[in-house]
Measured scan of single mutants.
Amino acid sequence: KELVLVLYDYQEKSPREVTVKKGDILTLLNSTNKDAWKVEVDDRQGFIPAAYLKKL
C-alpha cells in the first residue's frame, strides 16, 4: 500500500472529506484525480486536496 505525508492541516468541508493534521502519515487509496486524493484516516475514507499531500 502507498503512504502519503500530510503537509498542512486540513479541515473537512464536506462529508466526503476527512480532517488531517500536518505530519500525519496516511494510507493512499486513490490518486487518479489530480485535485483530490482519497485516503484512509482512522477507519474513515475520504478526500483531501492533493496539494496537501506528498507521496512517500
Rank of each mutant, 00 (worst) to 15 (best):
K38P: 02
D43W: 07
Y10R: 02
Q11G: 07
R16N: 15
K54E: 13
G23K: 00
V41E: 01
E40P: 00
L28D: 00
V39L: 02
K21L: 05
W37Q: 01
E2T: 13
V4I: 04
E40C: 14
L5D: 02
P49C: 07
T32W: 09
E17C: 09
T32Y: 09
K21I: 05
A50T: 09
L29C: 06
N30F: 06
D43A: 10
K13H: 08
L26G: 06
D35W: 15
T19L: 04
V41D: 04
F47K: 01
E2A: 11
E40Y: 07
D9V: 04
K22D: 01
K13F: 09
K21T: 07
A51Y: 13
L5N: 01
L7I: 09
K1Q: 11
K34D: 12
Y10E: 00
E40M: 13
F47N: 05
A36L: 15
A36I: 15
L28V: 06
A51I: 14
Y8T: 08
S31M: 08
L53S: 00
I25R: 04
L56Y: 08
L7T: 03
T27V: 15
K13A: 10
L5I: 13
Y10P: 01
P49W: 06
R16G: 15
R44P: 02
E17K: 05
I25Y: 04
W37K: 00
V18T: 03
L28P: 00
T32C: 14
L26N: 01
E17A: 07
F47S: 04
S14V: 05
L5H: 02
K38V: 15
T27C: 10
T27D: 03
E40A: 13
K1I: 12
E12M: 15
L5M: 10
K34T: 11
Q11R: 11
R16Y: 14
P15D: 12
K22Y: 04
D9T: 05
S31T: 09
L29T: 04
K34Y: 10
W37M: 01
P49N: 04
R16C: 15
D42E: 12
D24Y: 05
Q45T: 13
V41R: 08
L26V: 13
L28H: 01
L7K: 04
V41Q: 07
L26F: 03
F47C: 13
K22F: 04
L29Y: 03
L53Q: 00
L28K: 00
I25D: 00
R44W: 15
K1M: 10
S31P: 04
Y8M: 14
R44Y: 07
K22C: 08
G23V: 02
R44E: 05
D24S: 11
K38M: 15
N33R: 11
I25C: 06
T32F: 10
R44V: 08
G23R: 01
P49K: 04
K21Y: 09
Q45F: 08
E2K: 10
T27I: 15
P15A: 11
P49Q: 04
E12Y: 06
D42W: 09
A50D: 04
F47T: 08
L53F: 02
G23W: 04
A36T: 13
V4A: 07
S14F: 09
T32G: 10
D35Y: 15
D42T: 07
K54F: 11
L56V: 09
V39M: 03
D35Q: 12
W37F: 03
K55W: 06
R16V: 13
K13P: 06
N30T: 08
L56Q: 08
S14A: 09
S14H: 12
Q45N: 08
K21A: 07
L3G: 02
T19K: 06
V4W: 04
P15Y: 08
Y10G: 01
G46Y: 15
I25S: 01
E17R: 06
Y8I: 09
K55N: 05
A51T: 12
Q45P: 06
L7R: 04
D42C: 10
D9R: 02
D9Y: 08
Q45S: 10
R44C: 07
L56D: 03
L53H: 02
S31N: 07
